[in-house]
């Protein structure tokens, strides 16, 4: 069903207050999942009752990094891979701002990998929404650190031969205290995952499996429908996953909250408490 854009705007949904409606429609291709992730983020903020003036959104470079342009908050579209480093400075100086980083698999885990593991290690209260579409979309289809083995990309003719990251495990190992995986197909669930991530005081990482229909789909001969059906059929709620015998797990991924630890102190809180002791709290 093809709903005209004007009709969508007429619905005046509650979460629209977080969108820069005058900047729509987005630059994203038909079928891309980034819009769903933005929508889920807006819905999460609405339900949490966080005002636009309380949110900073930071991104790097790539398709997913165009998200802040459509988000009506304090937004910073920075350099490739460095969003978390910019966000660290912003959050440390103004901890009162809810800080969300929108990033992608290349931005976050190739060029930005170092910043990712260190932000996770510090357990700084930033929520990372990482759009994993298995490819560099904006530059038209090169292999990324999450491209599955065998997938076609423009820089791996004949199929990808490099092993990929399990980014959720990587986040956990690096010290993230909230790790979740959602998909662009399960938007209501994704909203809940992002909402819990924002609520969590510490480093939250939400991997969003999101089809790159036009680039990845075309290269790998998958249609829009097939890509979304793949997400539906091959991701399994974490509770069911835990009961699943090992042999049935092959080729499938758990989704939901994969790791949550509330016991570790948050970075900016630790820092500013030290400052309070030393200076009497004056800024």
């Amino acid at each position: 069903m093809n709903v005209p854009f004007e009709k969508v705007l007429e619905k005046k949904e509650s979460y629209f207050k977080y969108l820069r409606l005058d900047k729509l429609p987005t630059i994203w291709c038909p079928g891309c999942g980034i819009g769903q992730a933005l929508k889920a983020t807006c819905m999460a903020l609405y339900d949490l009752g966080i005002d636009n003036d309380q949110v900073a959104m930071v991104s790097g470079i790539g398709c997913s990094s165009r998200t802040p342009g459509y988000f009506d908050g304090f937004t910073l579209h920075t350099t490739h891979g460095r969003a978390l480093a910019f966000a660290t400075g912003l959050k440390l100086f103004k901890p009162e701002l809810t800080t969300i980083v929108f990033t992608g698999d290349g931005d976050c885990f190739a060029i930005g990998g170092n910043h990712f593991i260190h932000a996770a290690r510090r357990n700084i209260d930033v929520t990372v929404v990482m759009i994993n579409n298995w490819i560099y979309g904006m530059t038209h289809g090169q292999v990324s650190p999450t491209t599955p083995l065998g997938s076609q990309t423009t820089t791996t003719p004949g199929g990808n031969y490099e092993p990929n990251f399990d980014v959720a495990e990587l986040a956990k190992a690096a010290g993230a205290t909230y790790v979740a995986r959602g998909t662009a197909y399960h938007v209501t669930e994704l909203k809940k995952l992002i909402q819990d991530g924002i609520k969590h005081k510490g480093f939250s990482f939400i991997e969003v499996l999101s089809p790159c229909t036009i680039i990845y789909g075309r290269k790998n001969r998958m249609t829009f429908e097939e890509m979304y059906m793949w997400l539906k059929e091959n991701t399994i709620p974490v509770k069911a996953w835990e009961k699943l015998p090992e042999e049935k797990r092959a080729g499938k991924l758990p989704r939901g909250v994969l790791y949550h630890d509330d016991s570790r102190p948050e970075y900016t809180e630790v820092y500013w408490n030290r400052v309070k002791q030393l200076s009497g709290g004056e800024k």
Binding site: A56, V58, F74, L76, T78, T79, R82, A85, F86, A87, T88, G89, L90, K91, L92, F93, K94, L97, N114, H115, I117, H118, Y271, R274, V275, L278, S279, G281, E282, K283
Partner: peptide, 29 residues
Amino acid sequence: LPRHGGAFIQMEDEIASMAAIVGASFAGA
């Protein structure tokens, strides 16, 4: 800095340090 109510952070690399000061600058620092 802590004694003057400011923030100090040793970042993971030089690129991140430059990024962090721009982020903080946008926050008014």
